[in-house]
Nucleic acid binder design. Structure first.
Length: 250
DNA sequence: GAATATGTTTAAAT
DNA sequence: CATTTAAACATATT
């Protein structure tokens, strides 16, 4: 469930700890979602980590001339271990002693070797004109548009709620009717502030997410920190959390 | 022990 | 045809 802010902090911390480490071995425990066989991933062996960054909801690890993408999906977790063997292993990189393990109790997380270059812009890279034009073309609700990775990458259910709350826009508003500039600004400030916040709360974070500072995506609470009543909108099995003062644009 | 949480894929509907 | 909506999947934790 990590979204942009958690992944950004994770990428930075992993890079700090792993850059210049050389891959000595790889193990593919669950192959059903991978885009290569274990043999394929052996191409990474004897190559050295150059950089680690976030791309949408994926982590990209640059290893020699290859890119190893890790997609955490709902419950993927990363752990740096020496002697432990975490439950639900999916994939691991062995640096000779220390290992980076990707685990997922639902077996949905997956490693992707040399992923196709993406054409969809990231939520923190997209220009305002592109974002504005994208919204103009969409007649579905803004919450769905923001979380659809084919439109912009990196935003999930939780941060979409936080962004719309910050922008004062109701989640069921029609995408091409909402004030695009306001939404664009909120998207950037919410995400950037969350990255700073998580960096301070969890300076060594490499796994799971921190949502302790969220203002409206609070499934266990009835009110926001400001005392507003939290409303819930169900779309299928997905829930949006919002407050009455968020304007509905139709 | 039923309800919960949600990213992605595929199928169906508009 | 293109766009949008719905259903299916996966399962530990509460």
């Amino acid at each position: 469930m990590p979204e942009i802010p958690d992944l950004a902090v994770m990428a930075k911390n992993l890079e700090k700890r792993l850059v210049n480490h050389t891959v000595k071995d790889v193990v593919l425990h669950v192959s059903k979602n991978a885009n290569a066989t274990e043999n394929g991933f052996y191409a990474l062996v004897n190559h050295t980590i150059k950089s680690i960054c976030r791309e949408g909801k994926d982590l990209h690890i640059e290893i020699g001339d290859h890119i190893l993408a890790l997609r955490l999906m709902l419950h993927g977790e990363l752990r740096l271990v020496v002697a432990e063997f975490p439950k639900f292993p999916i994939f691991e990189l062995d640096f000779g002693g220390m290992r980076l393990c990707l685990t997922d109790f639902q077996s949905q997380a997956r490693p992707i070797l040399n992923p196709d270059p993406v054409v969809v812009p990231d939520a923190l890279d997209v220009s305002f004109p592109f974002f504005h034009q994208m919204l103009e073309r969409k007649k579905s609700d803004i919450k769905t548009v923001l979380t659809d990775q084919k439109n912009i990458r990196g935003i999930g259910n939780a941060y979409a709620d936080e962004i719309l709350y910050d922008a004062g826009i109701a989640p069921h508003s029609i995408a091409n009717k909402v004030p695009a500039e306001k939404l664009f600004k909120s998207m950037r400030t919410v995400l950037i502030q969350a990255i700073e916040r998580i960096g301070m709360l969890d300076p060594d974070r490499i796994t799971v997410e921190n949502r302790s500072f969220m203002k409206v995506h609070l499934p266990d609470k009835l009110q926001t920190p400001k005392g507003e009543t939290i409303l819930i909108d169900k779309k299928g099995t997905r829930k949006s959390y919002y407050v009455k003062s968020q304007s509905v644009y139709k």
